[in-house]
Amino acid sequence: MTIFIIRRFLLTLLMLFLVGLTVFMLGHLSGDPVRLMVPDQATEADIERLRHALGLDLPLPIQFLDFIGNAVRGDLGTSLRYRQPALQLVMERMPATAELSAAAMLIALVVAIPAGIISATRRGSWIDGLTSVVSVAGQSLPAFWIGIMLIIVFAVQLRLLPAAGRGDPGSLVLPALTLGLWPMARIARVFRSSILEVLHEDYVRTAYAKGLRERVVLSRHVLRNASIPVVTVTALTFGSLLGGTIITESVFAWPGVGRLALEAINNRDFPLMQATVFVVAAIFVVINFALDLVYVWLDPRIRLT
């Protein structure tokens, strides 16, 4: 177990390094932002002076080593546009994104788990049919379109909820629903097929043969065993939700990390780009690690190996 953790940790470091290198190279390949930052009247001398002041005139390998060296000490640089520490900016936006992702996940689970159970145990029923339709729609319709449709219906027509922005609690509903639809669809489908698989296992038949009632068979034998793939999908989906927030946050003007990342890319704000990707990558890694621990709890056999 200890060796496993150490190996995982080293692999994580390597991954973060590669992530950093990729972001750095892709960002710098498309040119630096200085020309766009200065007013039209600026001369080439002005541009060079600013480039020097921002440290963008150094050779790329030196800039990259500086970046890595500082990152190791917990300093992800200073945003070129905000002129504030990049890490601090990302952390300022993290609560908004965490709130949105958690609400989206909550909506997804609250709907997907019962939908999965019912559609698996009542196969062919209208609920099963509805779940399939909603799942296909939720996974194939782009979040961008869903978001705009929700705004038109609930904000413009019904005037129930705010169209955009973060403020009163009602502002969370539409973006969370938009972001939650995709994981909802995914989890419901996975849970349904996972339950169907377990229902055909010998031990389920044995349990029924022992004369246990359906409720007991389901709760004690089926759901627990069927939930392992669901935990995996839920955790990984939660990680990718952080990426999915880029679109949702832009549509709803939600002041989170996704929108910050998009603005950083548009502005070629290198330190901020790197900081957002770093933080999101780190969270993804932590989630993966936590996932392993949950497996151990759910499936005692993993502990033995």
């Binding site: 978001g147 705009i148 705004i151 038109i152 904000a155 413009v156 705010p162 169209a163 955009a164 922005g165 832009s250 549509v251 709803f252 003007a253 929108r259 998009l262």
Partner: peptide
């Protein structure tokens, strides 16, 4: 406020 999407601005 900043709302990047034109359609969201119009809806608001």
């Amino acid at each position: 406020k900043a709302v990047p999407e034109a359609s969201a601005r119009i809806a608001a």
